[in-house]
Design a protein around this nucleic acid. Structure first.
Lengths: 348, 348
DNA sequence: TTTATTTACGCAATCGTTCCCGATAACGAT
DNA sequence: ATCGTTATCGGGAACGATTGCGTAAATAAA
């Protein structure tokens, strides 16, 4: 099925003038007489002319669109980030193209390749869990392609970055559990490839140490695919609860891990918080509806999207190469509810 | 910041041949000798040549991308639909561009305009709640632009459509409440502009009538923005519970309405299902974690995205205009949990 | 040897738009 | 009458890639 659009030529032909004149009239150039301008404008209106953004992109060597790569959009955190991205991009006349890596390195590479081959002017990316080799990003970055990293970042690439204070979020969550009388706090976390894993586990460990508790490596369970595969979480929970000293609390470091953890506990018949308390990173908007209401570390996802986009547009629209890069660290919020309260905490 | 890419000309210059030869060599044309082909291929590899999709789009008058317009992606149902869309589009070499109308008619019009001005080959759309005037869609459709409607559709446009059996979903949900002893079932629903509202309310009413209950219009509350504004839901619940005969069950017809309803009930101190039962359309993946576990009508969202995309690609790639349009009706699933069980149901 | 055919490549138009150059006419200044 | 300005517009190249057509050389057929 063909779809024919009105071009600048149609207007030129209809008015018996050249395309240059039409183009200039539409762009309100001083070289065109007011009468001709009006003629062109009226004709364009009548024919319902719309400039062809593709032709423009080719000419101007820019597409006025930015690419976003996240592992999946069916995730509260990322969809909120995307809302933040769009809120800025939309105002500045940029189009947003979203790709999902689905935690796959291969898909991430393919997505990047497509986006970068000149169809987008810049890139916002949160790395996939499988991504260890960064050569695809480095190659782009070396060519001067504008990139801003957010959430799951890497220090190997020198550019703008936006993250939350993962260390602090994890520290606060863990300390909260400690203050509520928990002494055997486990961590359910993502792949060791990810920056967020390091930062959050570090915060968890530091909180334990600062409060005189020992770090027990058996209590730290990594889920490589971060809960994309449900069995991962079941296995991890299994390992935690087949130990001699079963944990009395679980700190889950991502949205999917948190909900996956709760599901597994429920299916195993473990009561939260009576048998085990739970705190998790999560941006779900129904934490209060969960049984029990869930204590969460909530990230300012919308803000993160906004900030990352502002930084990216700054890179894109800058005349000269930028050398000084910024790392914005936003503050997460610990929202305390019932899932983290030990039953006997008071009497202990 | 400029980003220079390697073009077919660079290869031609490097090899001292014409661009036509390079182009044909890359496309493996029979007119090019094996030796030249190899030379070109090697050179392209060495320079890391990537074809410019924008130039191709201009030439072929197609962008190999499709546009998607939904009200918001931070919604389980729509993000699952998008996953379905991408699963097909990706395999067929199409890029997906997502726009959010945020339930605004104006944004829907703007989104459409941008997408349609030749940057996409076709469109998948679920109408915004404000959309009453369809002239923007009709104009595009009249020009032969491929459009597939899904979820929130309209009969005013003759094209492929994909929906779930909303009538049946609502009927089943309502009948389930009736069988559990409820006699005062309220409906919390969307704008009357939306097709899904009509169909779901119709199913609700029919179930009441078929089971010998009366339809009480005071029990039907419309939220124009479908819960985007939280006060809407609070007002609606208020109206329901300030009546003489307070409802003993609520049937919510969308994801946001369902969770919004639960939040409001909780804040008012109403217990589910003791004080009032709740059943709702929802595609949340943590229905089982909610207190109480939520009975939902779940839509095959992924399937819907897949089907709609298949139909759209069929429209796009068809040689002649298609006259015979299909309306696919998928089957929703009632997942029964505890939120719909009246406490005294057994003894009644 | 002459003619026909095949092989292998280049030229140039094209897609829609912009923009650098000219080009023309009108007009005032010299 | 001639020149420089200004206002207004058109021609045509360019962006990157594809492709119909033309053509030279090489080969095969006569």
């Amino acid at each position: 099925m063909k779809f024919e659009a009105v071009t600048i030529k149609d207007i030129a032909r209809a008015l018996g003038i050249s395309t240059s004149t039409v183009s200039r009239a539409l762009r309100d150039s001083y070289e065109i007489s007011p009468e001709t301008k009006q003629l062109v404008l009226d004709c364009a209106e009548k024919l319902n002319y719309r400039p062809n953004p593709i032709a423009l992109s080719l000419k101007e060597r820019r597409s006025r669109s930015i690419g976003v790569v996240v592992c999946e959009i069916a995730n509260n955190f990322f969809s909120q980030v995307i809302n933040g991205i769009e809120s800025i991009a939309y105002d500045r006349g940029y189009n947003v193209i979203i790709s999902q890596s689905r935690e796959s390195y291969d898909r991430e590479v393919i997505d990047l390749q497509y986006l970068a081959s000149r169809s987008v002017d810049g890139l916002l990316i949160s790395l996939s869990t499988e991504t260890n080799d960064l050569s695809h990003l480095k190659a782009l970055h070396a060519k001067g392609f504008p990139i801003v990293l957010f959430d799951r970042i890497t220090e190997e690439i020198n550019t703008h970055k936006v993250i939350v204070d993962n260390f602090r979020g994890a520290y606060d969550a863990t300390e909260h559990l400690i203050r509520n009388g928990h002494t055997r706090i486990a961590a359910l976390t993502n792949s060791e490839f990810l920056s967020i894993t390091h930062e959050r586990v570090a915060g968890y460990k530091e909180a334990l140490i600062a409060n005189g508790q020992e770090v027990n490596e058996d209590y730290i369970q990594h889920c490589f695919y971060g809960g994309m595969l449900f069995e991962e979480i079941e296995d991890a929970i299994n390992k935690l609860f087949t130990q001699r000293n079963k944990p009395d609390a679980i700190f889950a470091t991502s949205d999917k891990l948190t909900t996956g953890c709760l599901k597994t506990l429920k299916r195993r018949g473990l009561k939260v918080p009576d048998d085990v308390s739970v705190v998790g990173f999560s941006n779900t908007d129904i934490a209060e509806l969960i049984d029990p209401p869930l204590t969460v570390v909530r990230q300012p996802a919308f803000e993160m999207g906004k900030d990352a986009t502002e930084l990216l547009l700054q890179l894109i629209e800058s005349k000269r190469p930028i050398k000084d890069f910024e790392k914005r660290i936003l503050t997460p919020e610990l929202q305390i509810r019932e899932s983290s309260f030990k039953k006997m905490a008071v009497t202990e």
